[in-house]
Amino acid sequence: MALLEVEDLRVTLPTARGPAAALRGVSFSLEAGEALGLVGESGSGKSLTALALLGLLPEGAAVGGHIRFAGRDLLALPERELCRLRGNRIAMIFQEPMTALNPLQTIGRQIAEPLRLHRALSRSAAADEAIRLLGRVGLKPAAGRARAYPHQLSGGQRQRAMIAMALACAPDLLVADEPTTALDVTVARQSLDLMAALAAESGMALLLISHDLGIIAETTRRMLVMYGGQVVESGPTAAVFAALAHPYTRGLFAARPRLDGMPGRLPTIPGSVPDLADLPPGCPFAGRCALAIAACTAAEPPAVDIGPGHQARCIRLDQQPPAGDPVAGGPA
């Protein structure tokens, strides 16, 4: 049995313009120790997917579907049970290392907190373990760093502290939501490499959300491409990179910043993400797709098998990209 099985996950958020169907039937699974990549434009629902796994969706969110983690349906668990899982079996690293730490507490105390909570370690035992974890993520001198406050550390150092905190209880699943957006290129690479290495070393499953296709290619064996609250393509990372089957995936790769550019920057495809509160019927990408035909907006495209474990939601997968533009995503 897979460690994590997400099945037909639906999230509706209240907005000023009415309920918005932010996640619309997201399904995927993750084996123990596996690394899964999640890519997609801003607003495609990546963070909401991650937050749903931890049961930390924004207030007022309506959730449907199933999230089975180690055999238990998380959506049916009471809050008290979820608290026992969070930071213990499932840990999360957030986008903003600058603001994700409490400015009034020492780094050591914040890393020790999940240990005190889930492992019932004594204050001093937790403090010692925090220092050991700081050494493990390469923050040296570890004892000195443990006594430091967040404002005394650089962005990269804080992100390492966040990684130490997430690893504290040796979770089964680590969710990393664009853990490097706020960092400069080299530092971002270093902390991603460190995270992936530590996850692999301790046999953790990793759900890595990133705009950086390069890091996805390096660290994950399988990947998901999200658009408009749906998984539009999923499959082995190598196969997705080779086939670029879905027109949206092609657009994402075409808009990818070049290697000399900033890997952290948002990819752009001509046109903009549709309004979730008022989604047109059919394929969510139709408004921006060069291959769109009338049938695309008639019904939601089903997931079609392309290869072993490789699927895409598009009714025109047999079509070649428009001539003269091998990987173009749509009209300018």
Binding site: L56, E79, R86, G87, E96, A100, N102, P114
Partner: peptide, 15 residues
């Protein structure tokens, strides 16, 4: 509404 509050919740602290 601060980010570190979400971090605290993600660690497993109750509300």
């Amino acid at each position: 509404g601060e980010d570190f509050v979400r971090t605290a919740r993600a660690k497993g602290l109750s509300r």
